[in-house]
Every structure is written in C-alpha cells, then in structure tokens.
Nucleic acid binder design. Structure first.
Lengths: 116, 116
DNA sequence: TCTATACTGAACCATATGGTTCAGTTACAT
DNA sequence: ATGTAACTGAACCATATGGTTCAGTATAGA
C-alpha cells in the first residue's frame, strides 16, 4: 500500500526542501532552542521562524513545548526511516535499470565480435 | 561547505515532494517511457506531465532524449547519494540528542536513588 | 504595578506550483 | 499531400509558500 505513505512523504520531503529548515534541524541536533534563538540565528522575524517550525512539526521532524512564555524546540520523533528506505528502493530500481543497460551493451559487443 | 549543496538539495527534495513525480521514478525504474505513456498512466494532460518531467530533469533524477517525435524518459544520473548521506547525518544528530537525554534520565535516577 | 520579552495570529505581498486549455510545430503513415 | 500523433510553449487559474508588518496576549522581572 504505497499510497498510504504518499501524504506523509509529500510533507516530509517538502519540509526538507528548504535550506533554512534543514539548518534548523542541524541546530536542534546540537541543542534544543527557543523560537527567538532560531529566528536570530537564521536572521528572520519571529513569525517567519514560527512558520518554519510549524512545517517541521507537521512533518514530525520537530517537537515543541511551551513553558512559561518560551516555546522550546527539539528534534521530533520522525527519524526519516521510511524516507531513507524509499531512497534505497529508488536506488535498487536505478541499479536494475543500469544493469539492464549493461547487458544490452554486452549483447551489442558480442554481436560486433561475431560480425568481425 | 554545506552551503554549496543547498541549492541542489532544495531542488531534489522539492522534486521528491510530489507523489506523481515519485510515481514516475518508480515507473522509469521498471522501463523507459514516453511523455504520452506517462501522462496516460498518471491521468494527466501531456503538458502537465511534461512539467513534472522538467522538474525531475532539473533535479538530475531523469534524463530525456527526443528521437523522431517521441521524447523518451529514463532514470537520470543522480542516485540521491548526497541526499541519503544527509539523512544519515541527520540521524546521527538525532541519536546524539537522544543519547544525551538518556544520560539526563540516568542522572535523575541516580539522584533519586541517593535521595532515598 | 509597570514594563519589557516571547510568542501568536491575522493580513498582506510576491513568487512558485500543479494543473489546465489552446494554438502551434514536427514527424510518421497512408 | 494530408491527416493524425507527439510534443512544445504561452497564457491562464487557484492555491501554496516564504516572507513581512502590525496588533495583540501572556509571562517574567524590577
């Protein structure tokens, strides 16, 4: 049931398609951070960063918790496992196609040889 | 020089964030195909499919060649190697954070025990 | 109690995206 | 020579995205 994962993949890959958001993930890998801290680090308004965090949260890549007036962001529960798997799958497809081409080339060589 | 890869990552992940395009990659993993064939398979106008192919081509995931009046699409040269690497990197960050939390939890338990 | 900080939400803006239709152009088949 | 098939490009449309400003609300600190 590949279809079932489609929506999730859409949102995860879309979340990863922005350099700022990938930067935020890197940062959160080093230490948790407030929205303000992240906004400063990436030279952006609070509101702008909040939106990015929203996207990352939606994709399960980040979790946040508000205590007092500061909302702390940390890495979320999605470890991109299925996405990494998908990439592996794609690579196998690629290899399959590649090997097929190799066979064709070999076949051509064989014919050339028998023609000589 | 992480920045150098940023633009490429942007376009690759964006290309992968659409279910139709991922479907096209799957299909091309099985066999090369014309734009018309792909458009039919994914129930879409020729023009629509052409745009998707354009996006995939831009990301290096697909290559095309026009012979006569049909343009044949096949898997491209990008094997998502750097992207897979990036995901691994992210995972290591995640693990690092996770282990850190584990230590904190252990530390808390130790204190609890010494309090008893 | 007053003030500054940290966030939130609505509204706005420019540009991008995913799709369409319509009007070509080129190439194959009769 | 002509019709049809395969693609291409321009124009259009609705919605999404990445950002902003501005006007709040809620909390921490003096």
């Amino acid at each position: 049931m590949v279809q079932l994962h489609d929506a999730r993949f859409d949102t995860t890959f879309a979340a990863l398609s922005d350099a700022t958001r990938r930067g935020v993930l890197e940062q959160l890998g080093r230490s948790d951070a407030s929205i303000t801290a992240l906004a400063e680090r990436f030279q952006m308004t609070l509101t702008g960063m909040k939106k990015h965090i929203g996207v990352l949260e939606q994709a399960g890549l980040v979790q946040t918790e508000k205590v007092g007036r500061v909302r702390t962001c940390r890495l979320g529960s999605s470890r991109l496992e299925q996405e990494a798997e998908w990439m592996e799958h794609y690579r196998r497809l690629w290899d399959a196609r590649f090997n097929e081409l190799d066979k064709v080339v070999e076949e051509l060589k064989r014919r050339e040889n028998s023609d000589e």
